[in-house]
Design a protein around this nucleic acid. Structure first.
Lengths: 293, 293
DNA sequence: ATTTTGTCCTTTATCGTCAAAAAACATAAA
DNA sequence: TTTATGTTTTTTGACGATAAAGGACAAAAT
């Protein structure tokens, strides 16, 4: 079979948004740039919009005829690439009772269950293996190492090393480095979130990721930067299904971040290290508290 | 097409070796265990040996009829899995002039050139991406980041952090831990190699890898242990095509290892750190000296 | 002269297929 | 009762086919 049309569908949905604003659509290359897809895909989108009476498309003119309705949109689940579907299903398993260490993963079974091809599953597992949660035996199946306490400890150890090093590098950035401006912006977002914590605490994880990725970017080391993918994956899925004390936890983290940011700005070595260590410690404890065993 | 018969062929060749020693072969499960393959493969091997007049196979009796000749063996290139073939070819490109940063990698072209399927190439590239030398653009090709000076620096930075931490963990191992015995054995191998350095210097890299992997195993951290794969890959391929000063370089490293081992045995924190740092420094310099730019 | 569109070609994403290799099960020998 | 062999079933490794998405180039419009 051919590839899924998720790029087209997702871009189509986003294009409906653009349509709601302005009365006409820009040129094909411009549309492509703003939707992040090729012109080929743009033309497919325009074709469909024309057919469905959303626009009148004639060469350069793409006049809007009516406002997009709810059922003009493609359903959201169709806009995911196959790899994302597999990822979600796999993570659900991993973090449930089925994810017990030592268990084996059957490519064919997983593929059938999800209604996808075996190669897609294979490729996902290969990509996923760098997270250290599964391992391949030659000519045989994958073995689950499990989301265990031991995993959390190993993860936290590396995270600590990398974060301290990145923080130190950040502190020494020249004053005109763009990261300082980015840091200011993120600091402001922290204040805004704390001010309305009751309504906004659930948005924290996205801000958290941006903050730490900014810090890590100062390391200028691809291995450190890439390692944050592991952290992000763990946080993303783990906390998605474990929301105990979420508000309190996030509020604490927000305040720790602000201390951390202040320390970075002060430029004092000891202050940075102290604030960083404190945050790492509580992040580590939070993670460990929510891991079985 | 089906999978290549490399497991069978490689096991067959190894089985010919067993045949040269003893007059008869053991039971099927035993053979499978010693060759590291399943009984299904063992039976294929026995079948062929019977057909070719190497043994007389009747149920439990597998009597050797003649000594294996040179042309009983499968040619070595047929015993490699497809992934190994791709890896070699790809690394040759990467370290040659074609490996210039920013270049794109064409899956289809690479597959055609090597006479393998596209999925094999894809899977290889996904696996290889964790080394930080290539990067994927969505719905588009892979981009070469190149084996550059910058890469070497980033690699050396992480390596330094991990090695120091592992060495510290090793030093604190309880006296009855099996790693100490393994260390003694490796130390003896170092002395043996130094004693006949002129003939044996080329075998160093294999010993080097075993030594460092032993040290890293004391970290009990999968991320540290797995990271050594990156180092090993770099050393393996890079030095395979760059043998300048190889003997001198290896001799220096051997002596540094011995100091390092002695420090570990002494249990003194400062001594371990010093010896480790010295070795890291010279390894770093050697690597940098042989990188362009 | 630059940008836009129309057309065609290339490359990637996904799947189904088939043989190799492993694993499971049943029967027979020690 | 354990271990080995014979037989059948599952699962993996590798490939080619096909449609989606990207990219190139010339003709047309500003």
């Amino acid at each position: 079979m051919a590839k899924s049309r998720n790029v087209y569908k997702q871009a189509y949905n986003r294009c409906l948004g653009l349509l709601a604003d302005g009365g006409a659509l820009p040129s094909e290359p411009e549309l492509g740039a703003s939707l992040g897809v090729s012109r080929t895909t743009v033309r497919s989108i325009l074709s469909r919009m024309d057919e469905h009476g959303l626009i009148e498309w004639n060469k350069r003119s793409k006049r809007a005829l009516r406002r997009p309705a709810a059922d003009d949109y493609f359903p959201e689940e169709e806009t995911d690439p196959v790899s994302a579907i597999i990822e979600r299903a796999f993570m659900r398993r991993l973090l449930s009772a089925e994810g017990t260490p030592g268990g084996v993963i059957n490519e064919l079974e997983l593929a059938r269950e999800l209604g996808v091809g075996t190669s897609s599953v294979r490729e996902f597992l290969i990509r996923f293996s760098r997270f250290g949660l599964i391992e391949k035996r030659r000519n045989s199946s994958w073995v689950l190492k499990g989301f265990t306490r031991q995993f959390a400890l190993e993860l936290a150890e590396i995270r600590g090393m990398f974060e301290l090093r990145s923080a130190a590098a950040f502190r020494s950035l020249p004053p005109n480095h763009p990261n300082w401006r980015a840091l200011d912006a993120i600091e402001a977002e922290h204040h805004a979130m704390i001010a309305r914590i009751a309504e906004r605490y659930a948005d924290f994880s996205e801000l958290d990721e941006r903050f730490h990725r900014l810090v890590h970017s100062a390391s200028h080391n691809r291995f450190i930067i890439d390692f944050y993918d592991v952290i992000a994956m763990v946080f993303h899925y783990h906390y998605q299904w474990n929301k105990t004390e979420q508000r309190k936890r996030n509020e604490t983290a927000l305040r720790e971040h602000l201390d951390y940011i202040e320390a970075l700005k002060s430029g004092e070595r000891a202050a940075v290290e102290q604030a960083c260590r404190r945050h790492l410690k509580s992040a580590r404890e939070t993670l460990l508290a929510s891991v079985p065993g």
